[in-house]
Design a protein around this nucleic acid. Structure first.
Lengths: 154, 154
DNA sequence: GTAGAACCTCAACTTAAGTTGAGGTCAACG
DNA sequence: CGTTGACCTCAACTTAAGTTGAGGTTCTAC
């Protein structure tokens, strides 16, 4: 089968770090940084400049979304490292990452919602200042079960 | 009117930094740190040791909750600074802070929920890897509206 | 063929929110 | 009165995620 012709000025070209930066909205310094952290890779041209396959744009997009979810770079790296080695990642590969992070996100949303409910309770009952409130609420002044925060933990 | 008698061994006593740490679940070093940042205050006994009024426990509890909401210490300080100067804070004072932070929390939950929905969409459509998906979704490889992240912003 | 933009490395700086350690004082118990 | 534990200050270190700058090279366009 004949391959589709690809314009070498466009799809066929590798990207410079500046191009990746412009197209991904990430600073050049951040791209360098990601590379030191092993989240992305590049090869060098004869003049020692980085050249990226277009795939890097998707990786960077994924990194950015995962960061928005609140995943630290180290974990993002671990996730990206779990992608297949030889072949390019498939839809299913990316979907697996998405699903993991979606679950994390869900957990975080749940935590924050519980916290919000507690805050609502406190606003309603005038707590934070009313002693009676100590009996049933997390803003307790007395750590009744030893040191550490218990009641506020989800 | 006769004041209620208070046992000086208990309610009447000021707290040492260690006691505050134990009762609030916050490390001594963190209490010192909060003090340098102006979030709490103490006075010193003849031996230059910190002594805290019991009120500090509520402040620390508030600080911890606000941190869970995601409020940075600097903003927490600003909020605490807005408490009345002369008198002790009332229920309404604390409730005002709670409400502000509740709203912030709500906003953050909303952001994360929108992000989750996008992630759900991506999982559903197999995006992150399917080119067609670029048309309608934020994982776009092409920053079509110039540098920076646009589509993912809430 | 040269100017200027873009690139390179490496070290140091940044912010947040603390922690850790050194070196020294204070207090409470027996 | 001595020792042990709690406390003091101050400086330096920590982690995350980068940014900034110096000093030097390469690429591109005229």
């Amino acid at each position: 089968m004949a391959m589709k012709r690809i314009d070498p000025e466009d799809w066929g070209k590798e990207l410079t770090v500046g191009e990746v930066a412009r197209r991904s909205g990430v600073a050049v310094s951040a791209l360098h940084f990601y590379e030191t952290r092993g989240l992305i890779r590049s090869h060098r041209n004869r003049g020692n400049q980085r050249r990226y396959p277009r795939e890097v744009l998707r990786r960077v997009a994924v990194i950015k979304v995962a960061q928005r979810v609140g995943v630290p770079l180290a974990s993002i790296k671990a996730a990206l490292d779990s992608l297949p080695d030889g072949r390019s990642p498939t839809a299913a590969d990316w979907a697996r990452l998405s699903r993991i992070w979606r679950d994390e996100l869900d957990a975080r949303i749940g935590q924050l919602q519980r916290l919000r409910d507690q805050l609502d309770g406190c606003i309603g009952c005038g707590c934070l200042s009313i002693k009676a409130c100590r009996l049933r609420n997390p803003w307790d002044e007395l750590a009744e079960h030893g040191p550490g925060a218990h009641l506020l933990e989800p």
